[in-house]
Nucleic acid binder design. Sequence first.
DNA 1: TGCTAATATTTAATATGTTAAGTTTTATAA
DNA 2: TTATAAAACTTAACATATTAAATATTAGCA
Lengths: 149, 149
Amino acid sequence: MNKEVNKTYPDTSKSLPIAMLRAREAMMLSFRPVLAKHGFTEQQWRVLRVLGEKGDSDAGQVAFDACILAPSLSRIIGKLEKDQYISRFVDAKDGRRVNLSLTSAGKEILNKIAPDVELIYNAIQKRYGEEKLSTLIDILGEVSEWRGR
Amino acid sequence: MNKEVNKTYPDTSKSLPIAMLRAREAMMLSFRPVLAKHGFTEQQWRVLRVLGEKGDSDAGQVAFDACILAPSLSRIIGKLEKDQYISRFVDAKDGRRVNLSLTSAGKEILNKIAPDVELIYNAIQKRYGEEKLSTLIDILGEVSEWRGR
DNA sequence: TGCTAATATTTAATATGTTAAGTTTTATAA
DNA sequence: TTATAAAACTTAACATATTAAATATTAGCA
């Protein structure tokens, strides 16, 4: 049951966007302090992680993978570059594209933080069970393909 | 399948927070233009909706229901009050609390926009089916109670 | 009663989200 | 080939997110 005494959900509990926000927020309350301890925001971390998992990518791809809009990404990579965690260089074949790459410092910090993040994720998985969480991810994946009408 | 050609999901597709963000974003791409047409942001709309569904509430309750942090809510209600959609008054019994209430203009705009929002939600429900979506909301509800380890 | 801790909200500072407009480079078609 | 549209980023402006600190008020207790 809900731990928040005197707080009851309104009918908005049937709202998918709010339900997703609430669930996401519950998890981030665990993840954020770990990232903050190392001086990273949630979004900066997503950028590093995506680059680590997929290797060098152009900004558009990173924006898509990390689910960050281009204008936000521009600022984020500006900071990550200044702090020397990533390097940025214009694509040789297409002058519009900007390629991003983790520096060695970036790879280092990534490997340093990842285990702490994994720990939390494992605790979540242990509590809710792999099956339920994979069902959740599957449905979320389907909904992600909603393209309005 | 994914409509984004040349864009493939990294391993972050297994990340629950990112999956929720992506799914939520897909839906909001449909909802936001409707709200924007009436000059409201997503968050302002959540505040109006919560007040409409639960009636007058103090700021803390609204913050919880709308899933908005207190500092953000302070500014949001500042604007909504200025625009005369809500009224704000200090609680008589507890001077720390601020009670919020929809004005008649607030109720009016709420009733005006709600049907458009419902329309989209119904389309989503029609596409994915009530059962799947209710499974989704159920699991999200469980995960929302995660309180760290 | 008076002191201190706890609450509820607000203010401040920095980072990101969102939409629109601006830049530079590439693709296209007349 | 060249004018024009499209693509990929960036910049700008305003709104929200996050954390910390400040304010004001109430609650608890010696």
